[in-house]
Design a protein around this nucleic acid. Structure first.
Length: 575
DNA sequence: GCCGTTTTCGGCCCGACTGTTTTCAGTCG
C-alpha cells in the first residue's frame, strides 16, 4: 500500500471519528498523521522497515503501528471495524457545506437520514426544520447546498485563481477607502489547486468599503456578510473571501490569513512559549514588542519577534521551515527575474498554435536569452508528431535562423521524444545526437503498473542522449491522477546519470509535484522550469512554475534555466 | 492520538459567522 492510500485511510478514519463524536484532538491527530505520511521524504516502505516512523512529527507509537500494519498487510482491522460501525451514507453527508459531525449525527439519530437523497426529502417535507438546533434557514441552506453541491465543492487551478484574483485586486484598488490589498491564503502560498480566493483589505472604514465593493463587483451570490469579512461568489463561479482589517494590523492579518493553518498553529505556540498571544489582530501580552503602536508591524517584524527570520509564504506549510529557520538554513528561493529562457516549447510543426518564428519573437519580447524548441516525436501522431525528416528540416531552419541573427534570442534545437512502452525512445540515437537537447516524456500506456513504469522511465533516463524528463508523472490536476511510479527511484536515476527533471509549468500539470523537489535538490538533481507552451501566451506559465519551484525550496542554482546562454550551451554540448 | 526546557498528564490556536437561540453551538478556515 502506498502513501496516498494510507493517507486516504487516515483521512477517512478522521471523518468517521468525527461522525462518532470523538475527541476533536484525536481527530486532528489522524489528519496530521495523513499529512505527515503524504509529505515524508523518500519511500514509505523504507521508513516502515527501518522502524523510523515515530521520528516523524505527528506520528506517535499508535499511528506508527497502524501504518506498519497497512503497509505490510494491506488492511487495518481498526479501520474495518470503524467502517462497519458507521452507516456508509453518513460519509457523503460530510461533503455538504454546513454539515459537520454533530449535525449529521442529529439527522441520523432523530430522522434516520443516511444519504444525500434522504436528506433532500426530509428538507422538502419540512422535517429538518423541526429538529432542535435546526430551523427554517438551515433547511433552506441545506437544499441550496444539495442543489449546487458540485459547483460549491469544486477546486480551481492555481493559474485560473491567480488570474481571477488579480482582476479582482485591480478593481478593488480603485475603491476609495481601501489603503492596502493583498492576496492571501493558498494562492499566496503557491498551492497547485485553490479552493477559494482570499483577499485581505486594509481599511479604516470596513462598513463603507464593503458596501462599495458589493455595488461594484455584483457578486452572483452573497454567502456571508459580517463586519470583518464578506464571502461572495464571483460571476465567474469562484468563491472569494474578502477580509477587512485596520491598516495598523495589516501585517498580523496577512500572516494569519496566508496560513497555512498548520504553520499558524506553530506560530501561535511560539508566541505562547514567550508569554504572548498571537492572533490576526496583534501579539499581546506583557512586554510584547509591539505594545508601542507607533509603526504598523510587517510580517518580517512578527517573525523576528518570535525569534525567526522571514519565512516566505510558499514555505509556510509546517514542513520543516521552522527547523530550517532556526538553524539559519532557509533557502534563498529562486525569483521570477532569475530565469533566462526555457525549454519545452511547441510550434505549429506539431500541435502548437504558433509558428517557430512567432514563438521565438514572443521569447525575445520577454527578454529571454534562449528558447528550446521541442515538438512531439513521430509516435505522438495525435499531436502531429514529427517524422525524422521533419525534425531534420526543422533543425536546418533553426540553424539558419540562428546564423541570420534575426532574433536576439538564441534557439536550441530539441525534441519532446516519446518514451515507448518498453523504455526505448521514439527516435534512434543517430537522430537524437544531432539535437541540442532531448526531453523524454510518456504519452501513452499511462496505466502500466508501478514496477513497469518505473523501469520504463529509468531505461529512458539512461539513454546517453536524454537531457531531461518531461512532465514526469503525467498528472492532470483535478482531472487525471499521476501514473503509478516510484519517484524516489526515478530521482535517483536522474542523479546517477546527470539528467535534469522538468518542472512542467503548464497550469494543468505543475509536474513534478512540489513535495518532491527538496529531496531531488539534495540529491543534486537539476530542475528546468518549462512552460510546455503550445501558444505564445503560454510562455507566461513560467510564473506558475517559479511559484511551485519556490514551494519546493529551490534556489536559482538548482535551476538549469537560470544559467546564461554560454553555460547552458556548455552543459548541453557535454552530452 | 500526540507531545514534553511547564515533560508521562493534561493540555492541545483562535476567531468569524450563521442560525438558533436569548448566551451559545456548530461549522469553517
Amino acid at each position: 500500500m502506498d502513501r496516498k492510500e494510507v493517507a486516504k485511510i487516515f483521512e477517512e478514519i478522521a471523518t468517521l471519528l468525527e461522525l462518532q463524536g470523538a475527541n476533536p484532538f484525536r481527530i486532528r491527530a489522524y489528519h496530521n498523521g495523513a499529512r505527515a505520511i503524504l509529505n515524508l521524504e523518500g519511500d514509505l516502505e523504507e521508513w516502515v522497515h527501518q522502524g523510523k516512523l515515530d521520528e516523524l512529527a505527528g506520528i506517535g507509537a499508535d499511528l506508527a503501528k497502524k501504518i506498519e500494519t497497512l503497509v505490510d498487510k494491506g488492511k487495518l482491522p481498526f479501520y474495518d471495524e470503524l467502517r462497519r460501525s458507521v452507516p456508509k451514507g453518513l460519509l457523503e453527508l460530510m461533503q455538504v457545506p454546513g454539515l459537520g459531525g454533530k449535525k449529521i449525527r442529529a439527522l441520523h439519530e432523530k430522522l434516520g437520514i443516511a444519504s444525500l437523497s434522504a436528506l433532500k426529502s426530509a428538507c422538502l417535507s419540512g422535517e429538518v426544520e423541526k429538529l432542535k438546533g435546526f430551523g427554517k434557514k438551515t433547511q433552506e441552506n441545506l437544499l441550496d447546498a444539495l442543489a449546487h453541491q458540485e459547483a460549491y465543492s469544486k477546486r480551481h487551478l492555481f493559474w485560473e485563481a491567480l488570474e481571477e484574483a488579480e482582476t479582482l485586486i485591480g478593481k478593488l484598488r480603485k475603491i476609495p477607502g481601501i489603503v492596502e490589498v493583498e492576496i492571501a491564503g493558498s494562492l499566496r502560498r503557491g498551492c497547485e489547486t485553490i479552493g477559494d480566493i482570499d483577499i485581505l483589505i486594509g481599511t479604516d472604514d470596513p462598513e463603507g468599503v464593503a458596501k462599495k465593493i458589493l455595488t461594484k463587483l455584483k457578486p452572483s451570490r452573497l454567502m456571508a456578510r459580517g463586519s470583518a469579512k464578506i464571502t461572495l461568489r464571483l460571476p465567474e463561479g469562484m468563491q472569494a473571501d474578502l477580509r477587512f482589517i485596520a491598516p495598523e494590523q495589516f501585517g498580523f492579518a496577512l500572516a494569519y490569513f496566508t496560513g497555512s493553518k498548520e504553520h499558524n498553529i506553530r506560530m501561535r505556540e511560539r508566541a505562547i512559549a514567550r508569554g504572548w498571544r498571537l492572533s490576526e489582530y496583534g501579539l499581546e501580552g506583557k512586554k510584547s514588542p509591539f505594545s508601542n503602536k507607533a509603526k504598523a508591524p510587517t510580517e518580517k517584524d512578527i517573525f523576528h519577534a518570535l525569534g525567526l527570520p522571514y519565512i516566505p509564504p510558499e514555505l509556510r506549510e509546517d514542513l520543516g521551515e521552522f527547523a530550517a529557520a532556526e538553524k539559519g538554513e532557509l533557502p534563498h528561493l529562486v525569483e521570477e527575474g532569475d530565469l533566462r529562457g526555457a525549454f519545452h516549447n511547441h510550434t505549429s510543426a506539431s500541435d502548437g498554435e504558433n509558428t517557430l518564428e512567432e514563438m521565438v519573437k514572443a521569447a525575445e519580447n520577454l527578454g529571454w536569452e534562449y528558447i528550446g524548441i521541442s515538438d512531439h516525436s513521430r509516435s505522438s501522431f495525435q499531436a502531429n508528431g514529427l517524422s525524422e525528416e521533419r525534425v531534420l528540416s526543422q533543425v536546418d531552419k533553426i540553424h539558419k535562423l540562428n546564423s541570420s541573427k534575426r532574433f536576439s534570442t538564441h534557439i536550441f534545437t530539441g525534441i519532446e521524444c516519446d518514451i515507448l512502452r518498453t523504455g526505448e525512445l521514439d527516435f534512434p540515437d543517430s537522430l537524437l545526437k544531432k539535437l541540442d537537447f532531448v526531453i523524454i516524456s510518456v504519452h501513452n500506456a499511462l496505466q502500466q503498473d508501478e514496477k513497469t513504469m518505473t523501469a520504463r522511465l529509468i531505461r529512458a533516463i539512461e539513454n546517453p542522449y536524454t537531457t531531461m524528463v518531461g512532465h514526469v508523472t503525467g498528472r492532470l490536476l483535478l482531472r487525471r491522477e499521476a501514473c503509478k511510479l516510484n519517484l524516489n527511484k526515478v530521482i535517483d536515476a536522474c542523479a546517477a546519470n546527470g539528467k535534469i527533471i522538468e518542472l512542467n509549468a503548464q497550469s494543468k500539470r505543475l509536474d513534478m509535484d512540489w513535495r518532491w523537489w527538496r529531496s531531488a535538490k539534495e540529491k543534486g538533481v537539476l530542475c528546468s522550469i518549462n512552460p510546455d507552451a503550445h501558444h505564445t501566451s503560454d510562455l507566461l506559465y513560467l510564473r506558475a512554475g517559479i511559484k511551485i519551484a519556490r514551494k519546493g525550496w529551490l534556489e536559482a542554482k538548482n535551476i538549469f534555466n537560470t544559467r546564461s546562454l554560454a553555460e547552458v550551451s556548455r552543459f548541453l554540448s557535454r552530452r
